[in-house]
Computed example of a mutant assay.
Amino acid sequence: MRRHGAALKRFTADAWDQVTTSNDCEQLMKRVATGRKNWLFKGSLSAGERAANLMTIIGTAIRSDLGVHAYLDDVMRRTLAGETNWSVLSPPAGRDSNPESIRDYRHDERRQAADRKRVRHARRRRLNK
């Protein structure tokens, strides 16, 4: 408390001044922490590998700003139809083949978060001078 008293006062004085976090990383780790107990009961090693592969695909689709349901539906239909060119099924290729499943609002959210962060840092620099 003694070392961080000034920062605590600044945080409690300004409601817009938020605690800095690495939200993307925290969200990725949340999946790991949530699934850790569930993975104990997958049934077999191969079931665990399949679940890990599916979670990797879902995580990549989320990071690529694709609608997960639409992307998985497209990938499953194409693999069941016999598609074996995996580079065509990757999320960047999925963005090209399914432009309607791109979640454009994520770009706006990231831009707004970056703007808020820039304002917070500028405010902190002013207060520390």
Score class of each variant (00 low, 15 high):
residue 46 S to V: 14
residue 93 A to D: 01
residue 42 K to R: 13
residue 116 R to M: 08
residue 57 I to N: 03
residue 108 D to P: 03
residue 112 Q to H: 02
residue 128 N to S: 15
residue 66 L to M: 07
residue 59 G to E: 06
residue 52 A to M: 09
residue 22 S to M: 14
residue 127 L to D: 08
residue 66 L to K: 00
residue 99 P to Y: 05
residue 18 Q to N: 06
residue 112 Q to S: 09
residue 37 K to W: 07
residue 23 N to Q: 15
residue 124 R to P: 04
residue 92 P to Q: 14
residue 33 A to Y: 11
residue 43 G to S: 08
residue 84 T to Q: 13
residue 51 A to L: 07
residue 124 R to E: 15
residue 87 S to F: 05
residue 62 I to N: 06
residue 33 A to R: 15
residue 61 A to T: 03
residue 33 A to M: 14
residue 35 G to Y: 04
residue 102 I to M: 01
residue 76 M to R: 15
residue 88 V to D: 13
residue 57 I to P: 01
residue 58 I to A: 08
residue 13 A to D: 11
residue 12 T to D: 05
residue 79 T to G: 02
residue 15 A to W: 04
residue 109 E to T: 08
residue 39 W to A: 13
residue 42 K to T: 13
residue 101 S to Q: 06
residue 49 E to V: 12
residue 78 R to A: 07
residue 98 N to P: 02
residue 13 A to I: 01
residue 68 V to H: 02
residue 93 A to H: 05
residue 37 K to T: 12
residue 63 R to H: 12
residue 115 D to K: 09
residue 36 R to D: 09
residue 34 T to K: 06
residue 119 V to Y: 05
residue 53 N to V: 02
residue 119 V to G: 00
residue 70 A to M: 01
residue 127 L to F: 14
residue 33 A to P: 06
residue 79 T to S: 05
residue 100 E to P: 01
residue 95 R to V: 00
residue 98 N to F: 00
residue 116 R to Q: 12
residue 56 T to F: 04
residue 88 V to Y: 08
residue 3 R to V: 08
residue 49 E to L: 10
residue 83 E to F: 03
residue 46 S to P: 07
residue 68 V to T: 03
residue 96 D to G: 03
residue 96 D to S: 10
residue 41 F to M: 12
residue 126 R to A: 14
residue 82 G to S: 06
residue 4 H to M: 14
residue 61 A to H: 03
residue 40 L to N: 13
residue 15 A to L: 02
residue 101 S to H: 00
residue 129 K to A: 14
residue 111 R to A: 15
residue 11 F to Y: 10
residue 55 M to K: 04
residue 105 Y to W: 09
residue 20 T to R: 10
residue 102 I to A: 03
residue 95 R to T: 04
residue 35 G to M: 01
residue 114 A to I: 09
residue 92 P to D: 04
residue 75 V to D: 01
residue 55 M to A: 11
residue 46 S to D: 15
residue 60 T to C: 04
residue 100 E to V: 04
residue 32 V to N: 12
residue 31 R to F: 12
residue 84 T to D: 07
residue 86 W to H: 10
residue 63 R to C: 11
residue 92 P to W: 06
residue 122 A to M: 04
residue 21 T to S: 12
residue 109 E to I: 07
residue 113 A to E: 13
residue 102 I to W: 00
residue 106 R to M: 13
residue 114 A to P: 02
residue 89 L to E: 09
residue 109 E to R: 05
residue 20 T to D: 11
residue 124 R to W: 12
residue 26 E to W: 09
residue 76 M to K: 15
residue 69 H to A: 11
residue 126 R to H: 06
residue 16 W to N: 07
residue 99 P to S: 12
residue 28 L to N: 13
residue 3 R to Q: 14
residue 71 Y to L: 01
residue 88 V to I: 12
residue 103 R to M: 12
residue 27 Q to K: 10
residue 112 Q to G: 00
residue 12 T to K: 11
residue 110 R to W: 07
residue 55 M to V: 04
residue 108 D to C: 05
residue 118 R to K: 13
residue 70 A to C: 02
residue 44 S to C: 14
residue 6 A to H: 10
residue 67 G to P: 00
residue 116 R to G: 05
residue 110 R to Y: 05
residue 95 R to C: 05
residue 123 R to I: 09
residue 87 S to G: 13
residue 14 D to C: 01
residue 35 G to Q: 03
residue 8 L to S: 07
residue 54 L to F: 06
residue 19 V to H: 07
